[in-house]
Design a protein around this nucleic acid. Sequence first.
DNA 1: ACCGTTGTAACCATTTTAGTTACTTCGGGA
DNA 2: TCCCGAAGTAACTAAAATGGTTACAACGGT
Lengths: 138, 138
Amino acid sequence: MKQISSRFSIAVHILSLIAISSKDCTGDFIADSVNTNPVIIRRIIGMLKKAGLVEVRSGVGGASLLKDPDQISLLDVYRAVEVIEDGKLFNFHDEPNPACPVGRNIEAALRSEMMEAQSAMEQRLSQVTLDQLTVQFQ
Amino acid sequence: MKQISSRFSIAVHILSLIAISSKDCTGDFIADSVNTNPVIIRRIIGMLKKAGLVEVRSGVGGASLLKDPDQISLLDVYRAVEVIEDGKLFNFHDEPNPACPVGRNIEAALRSEMMEAQSAMEQRLSQVTLDQLTVQFQ
DNA sequence: ACCGTTGTAACCATTTTAGTTACTTCGGGA
DNA sequence: TCCCGAAGTAACTAAAATGGTTACAACGGT
């Protein structure tokens, strides 16, 4: 990968805006704050809906949170926007040669370390909630 | 991103093979163990050379380590293969609207949390050395 | 001089990403 | 009831990353 998709940062932006804003959060209003196309916003809100984080008033429009901001962690958002394939941050090359001692054993050993590293990151994300961010937006 | 490139797992494979193998580690020999094209191996070895981890006997061929396996961490390898852009694991969407309190403040707040999460992962990678892996390849 | 090996360049197919246009559907207000 | 703003989605695009491949020049022992 190059980088983890900006879907994640946009999703956090969207949720922060909904949490803070008193006015109706329509796709166009959010798109103006994020500075992107409204369709991008709708797509990401669709993912947040699927994850049970927000709801959208159909017809009239406007999104609202389904959880308190102190009950939404950055990990929840990260997982909602499906930023990585199959839940695995690290890719592993296909089918090393089983006839070689390294080829035969490296996958188990390295995958285990990859999971530890990934967990360390996700655990850190899980410790930060939306309200811990929004208090900084005076 | 989809996933962190398999360049990382291949690089670890390559270094493990060099560390363990008694015979000459040519690109073709390594490619056979990794099960990929020799050019892929040469490209990654080039990155490991640039990072000062290996050297290659020119003309005759064969790679060898420039450091003891207990002095090479997974983080060293991870950084050597330039798996992420600009050293930043997370991407951040461009230019949120400064006229909005969220748009104006979210970048600093979120980037700080992104760095913490990235550091947690990298710190875990830095704790594992090549020899801790290779002892598992009997 | 030959031959295996390395270092690259060039090219390719596939996938992801971010953005865009366009169209249908929904539901409230005039 | 008829609009109108909004959401949901399909289809398309351009750009970039990825993994792979062929080809070729340069190097250095035998």
